[in-house]
Structure formats: C-alpha cells, structure tokens
Design a protein around this nucleic acid. Structure first.
Lengths: 128, 128, 128, 128
DNA sequence: GTGGTCTAGACCACT
DNA sequence: GTGGTCTAGACCACC
C-alpha cells in the first residue's frame, strides 16, 4: 500500500489520502483488520503534517471504512465482501446517473451515450 | 435563458452561473451571437455581487464559449453545430472513460458496469 | 445564543461547542436558516483557536444540523419540526435503553428503576 | 468471574476492566473478600499489558470497591449489601436525573419521556 | 510507541 | 468579510 501526494492537484492533501486509502480498501489491497500506518509515520512518509493525516483518517472513520483506537492504532474496519460490493455498486450507480442525466440534458441522445460508454469500456478493459 | 442560484448548494455561486450558461449554450437555448446580460444586470438579477458574475464570465470566456467586447457587451461565441457536438461528445467521452477506469480498478467487472449504465440510462430517459 | 466553555471539563472544547449548539438547535433557540457566528468571531469570543471552532462546526455539519458555505458563512440546516422531534426522541430512547439495560444487569429490579425514574422526573419538572 | 476485552470498542481497555469488575461486584458475582487475579495473571489472561491492569485496579481502589495489600494480593472490599444497594441506586438516580433534565430542556415533555422509559424498560426486561 | 486535543499563525478560495 | 487547508509544534491519554 503506497500513497503518493500530488502537490499540484486541486484536491486537498487529506482528500488524496482519503481517496487512495479508500481505493486500496475497495480493491482489496487493504483487508479487514489490517493496520494502517500510524498518523506520525504516514505524515513523515508523505512529508506532510500530522494534522493532515489525522484529518484524512477522521474522514475515513466517518465513512465507516476504518476504525481508530487511542493508543493502539488505526485499522481497516470489518466489512464483508458484500458490503464492499454494495459500496462499489452504489457509488458507480450514483455517478453514472449524474453523468447520464447531465449529458442527456445537454442534448446527447441515448444511442450516442451508449456508444460512447461502450467505447470507453472497451478501451479501458484493453488497457488492463 | 434563466439562471437560478441554489444557495444551499455546495457549489460556488460563480460555478453555478458557469454551469448553467454552458448548458444553455450546448443545448442551443443560447445561440451564437446572442447577447448575455451585462455583469451588473446579472448580478442584480441573481442578488449577488459583480465580482461573482465577472468571475463566471471570465471562466466562460476562457473556455471559448463567450466573448466580451469592451463597451459593447458579452455575446455567445460563434461555434458551429459540429463544434458544439464535438464539445458535448468529447466531454462525455472523457468523463465516461474516467468513471469506467475508476470502477474497473475498484473491482467491478465490465458486465456489472454495463448493467448499471443501462439502468441509469433507462431511469433518466424515463424522467424526462 | 451563548456558549460558555469549561476549561476544567473532561469534554474537549470542540465537543462543548457541539453540545451547546446542538442543544440550542433542538430547543429552538436557533432556527432553520439562522446564521451561526463566524469561525473567527466565535474563536475570539471563546478565547480559543479557529481550529477548535472549525472542528466543532465540522462535526455539526457531519450530523446534518448545520450547513457551511465557503465565503458566505455557516447556517442552521433546514430541518422540519418533525425531524427535530425525531432526533430528540431517538436520542432519548437510545440513552434510556442503555441506562435501563445497565442497571438491570447490576441487579436493580424494574420496580425500583421505575420509582427512581418517577422521582427524577418529578424533581426536574419542579425545578423548571 | 470472567473479563473479556472488546478490541473493537472505543472504550479504553482499562475502562473495560473497571466496568466489568465493578459490575461483577455490584451483581454479587464477586463478594466481599474474594481475591482478584494478580496484575500479571490478569494481564496474561487478557493479552494486555500490566500497565493496563494496574491502571484498572487503581481506579477500582480509588472508588473503594477493591483493596490491595502489598505482597498478598488484591481483594474485593468489605461492603455490606446495603452499601452495594446504595451505590446502585444512587448511580441510577444521578444518571436518570441528568438524562431527564437534559431532554426536558430540549423540549420533550414528561409524558413522552415516561412513554420512552416504559418502552425501554419493557424491551430490556424481555431481552433478559 | 499509539491516537486526541489544542495553539498561533499562514495562505488560498469565495462573496 | 467569509470558510478551507496546511504547518510546526505542544501536551495529554492510552498501551
């Protein structure tokens, strides 16, 4: 598990940590019960401040993805594979709905959108 | 063409103006050469500050969608229907590619994504 | 609306701000749409740091009780009276259940608990 | 008498030991004069550190519930059944008073609170 | 060692 | 003016 921060990104540092950690949990790179790096260790690794790592872990805990215990450390929460899949699918559904709604409003028709989706899927599947 | 600001949206006011104006241009509600309200008029209509409307017009001009002429006002840029369609499709393609790439990486398979896309499309087409 | 911090309390400062603000909203002292003091103003009033007031507002926003808008300020969220009452009742129910469960386990019987509850209620109603 | 630590509880480990020991004494599972496991034995049993068990016994001794004799071990303090009952009732009374006071202030009326209490009691009595 | 809270200050984005 | 992010450092609680 490796996090890289992009200082030139629009996204705040803590958000980048959140996003990458979340992705690691959803892909299974981090599994239930796995320990996360300590706040101070992560801050040192990323050359950032403890406040920033703390804020990221706080948000992740708010989402229920990790649990922190004073004096003991921070760990990936216990989530069944079904829960993970439910999260993945519901996020995908929400984003797809927003995207489709947006471009239908802009005048693209259903056929065109379907064609663009198929092309995107084909390209990305190939890249893997 | 009517812009409404949603005070309870997290999106900045200037962004809401940009988004709605852009949508109006891409849907054809605003056509090439159409005049836009003056900065002051728009600010008065939306009960916001000129700084906010100015910021929005600057962004739109930066995207090449509108053009301001000193002393004469602001107008929709001259863009052929092919240009508009190219913009619509390339934006949709980019966002679909990002979305597909993201969720494939998280472990969703192509079939699931296709199913979710079809469902989103069906729901949104119905809503219209 | 007046917040007072007790430095000698076990509860962290931000938590005291959260608790008192939440109480003000639930009692109706603060109503939907009312503006809250700015982060800096509140920090100055309470002689604490902006980080502390920020943390408090962040938690309150996470609970859905307030909304903050960059550049505009922080406001009480729009919650109907039914929502407020649902919050009040569900919190009371949870805490009563925990309390009852705890003391039943310690060996108090239902009659004794009921008697103690009635006494507490009588005393507190009188004090008002 | 068996203590189990819940690693996924937010409560500190020493507090869990305190709570469970206290409950054992108040329920009568541990009686006046009964020996408690040694600090090291308990630490070994719970797979925790002696510092943690020491902290727990200190707190319990501070409350007057146990007594440590240098070189001989730790024992449940001599408390008559009246004392135990007084502790149980006074704790219950205090917590009920706080709870009632809090929710009256938030706008719940006495009838509603009584109804919620009755429901909590009924549910918890059933669960036993 | 771990996380939890807090300070005093900075710079940026938005209105 | 508003809130949003970040720093460098401190002290405390828990293990």
């Amino acid at each position: 598990m490796l996090i890289t921060l992009d200082a030139s990104s629009q996204a705040p540092l803590y958000q980048q940590i959140v996003d990458q950690t979340k992705a690691a949990i959803l892909t299974g790179a981090l599994r239930s019960g796995d320990p996360l790096p300590s706040l101070r260790q992560l801050a040192a690794d990323l050359v950032t401040s403890v406040i920033t790592t703390k804020r990221a872990y706080q948000d992740l805990e708010g989402e229920g993805l990790i649990k922190t215990f004073q004096g003991r450390g921070t760990f990936v929460a216990y989530l069944g594979e079904e829960s993970l899949d439910r999260i993945r699918q519901s996020e995908a559904q929400t984003r797809l709905r927003d995207l489709v709604s947006h471009f239908l409003r802009l005048g693209l028709d259903a056929d065109t959108l379907t064609r663009l989706f198929a092309r995107a899927l084909a390209e990305e599947v190939d890249r893997k």
